[in-house]
Structures are given as C-alpha cells and as structure tokens.
Write a protein that binds this DNA or RNA. Structure first.
Lengths: 133, 133
DNA sequence: CCGTATCCCATCCGATACTG
DNA sequence: CAGTATCGGATGGGATACGG
C-alpha cells in the first residue's frame, strides 16, 4: 500500500497545494471557502442542528449551508448525526480531524479579526494614494 | 479616536467574521480565497516578480493574479516594489502583517496537505456508502 | 517584462417553492 | 424541522488582444 504522496512522487509532481493536480487544493478550498470556513468556525463552538447553524453563520442560505455541510462531511471533517424521530432531528459536529483543521483555521480567523484596524488603515492609504481628485 | 471594534460594539453587533456586516469577513475572503491563499503561500518563500509568481501558483491566469495582488496590497498584506527601469521590474513581498497572517495560513495548508490520505479515505467511505450500485 | 481591457462562458449563489 | 429542486441574476475566471 502506497500513500497518495508516494504515488505523486513517482510522477515527479510536487504533492502540494500549489500544484493544480494535487487533490489537497480542492480540500483546502472546501475548508477556506466562503461558507466552509464560517461553518467550521461555528462548529468549533459545539454541536448544532441545521437551523442553529444557519443562524450562527449570518447570511448563509439553506442551499449553500446544505452544500457546504455535504462537502465537509465527505472530506471527513464534519460528522452528521441523524435521529429518525418525527420531526427529524439532525446534529452536526466536527470530527477529530475536523477539529484539528479548525484549530488552525481559528488561529487565522482570530488574528485577522484582531488586526482589522491595521487593514482598514492600509486601505485608506491605498485608496487616497490613487484617487486624489 | 475609537477602534472599529468599539464602533461596532456601540451598535451592539458582534465584531467578528460570523457577522455579515463585519469588514473582517471580506478580508478573510481575500486571504483564504482560491488564489489569495496560494499567492500568500508562494510569497512566504520570499520576494518574487510577477511572472515568477505565476509559475509558482500553478494554474493562475494573469488577470486573477493581478486582481489578487491588488486586493492583498490594498489590505496591507503585500508590498509592491516597482523599479522605473526599462524593461520594468516589479517585486512583490509580504509586509510584516502579511507575514504574520501567512504563518497561520501555512500552518493550516501544511496540516491539510499532510492529512490528505485521511481525507481521501473518508471520501471513499462516503461515496461507496451512497452509490452502491 | 508587467501588466490592463475586453469578451464571454461557467459556476456560484440567493430566492422561491415544494417534500417527507 | 431538515432539507431538495429549480430558476435567473451576479460573480468568478479563462482567453485573447493590446498598451507602457
């Protein structure tokens, strides 16, 4: 049994996200995509039902949340727990792998949030430098 | 002088990426977007010229690289150094803030790359569970 | 070499309606 | 409650051509 990395190495392709053909690029996009990052971040706080998640991720539509959760579940980052009751109850939570990913994602998110004043100041400098009149 | 966070607090809005109105959501999308993440990752290795970057970020078009670099420069994460020579020479590099952001981004990227076999295995389980025939 | 401008298509995504 | 189905507009993004 060889790993995916080893199979790529045989073709002399770099096995990393900078290579168009590497599957990690797709997974990274699920994780960092517009709704993927926010969904993982919300689930970092605990286990939630579908509509609870919708309220936590401000602005996400039913369609996109559903799509996002499916992609993350398929990648093994989110676990879906459906109870066959009526009305149905479904809970979503991070898998151990998903939690490790999200720890690193949250480090990034919180850093960006904390430095927004720097970013906003940079924008003003940039804009005023090229639209003086 | 108040910070952006304080102004949001006055409106009793959470100042974080989960709130639709918070500007940090837009910046996070620049950082984690399809080409933003890869461009920052490439610049983490050093200073590069436009076409050097294009080769490092496999698959990016001129248009998207240009657009991505502008957004990151505007947010104060990338510095553009143009030398008025002929032919022109332009170098891009991370700012100190950009470097701090990218450190956290690279932690995420490298973790995902290293766990791709787990992700791929999860996908096979997911797919075979719902398309048996 | 370092881009910008234009065209055009694919996909993303929100709104709405409907099902179990 | 927890979704799926469908539609149409907005956006993303590649190809090409052109300008400094």
């Amino acid at each position: 049994m060889t790993t995916a990395q080893e199979r790529f190495a045989e073709q002399e392709l770099p096995y990393n996200v900078f290579s168009k053909a590497c599957p990690s690029r797709g997974t990274l996009e699920h994780v960092t995509g517009r709704w993927g990052a926010l969904t993982l971040g919300a689930l970092y706080e605990g286990s939630f039902r579908f509509n609870e998640l919708r309220r936590r991720v401000d602005g996400v539509s039913e369609k996109m949340l559903s799509q996002t959760l499916h992609a993350l579940e398929r990648d093994g980052l989110v676990h879906r727990e459906a109870q066959p009751t009526n009305p149905p109850r479904v809970d979503y939570e991070l898998t151990p792998l998903g939690r490790e990913v999200t720890e690193r994602l949250m480090s990034l998110i919180q850093f960006v949030e904390g430095r927004m004043d720097d970013v906003l100041a940079a924008r003003e400098r940039y804009d005023s430098a090229r639209a003086p009149r």
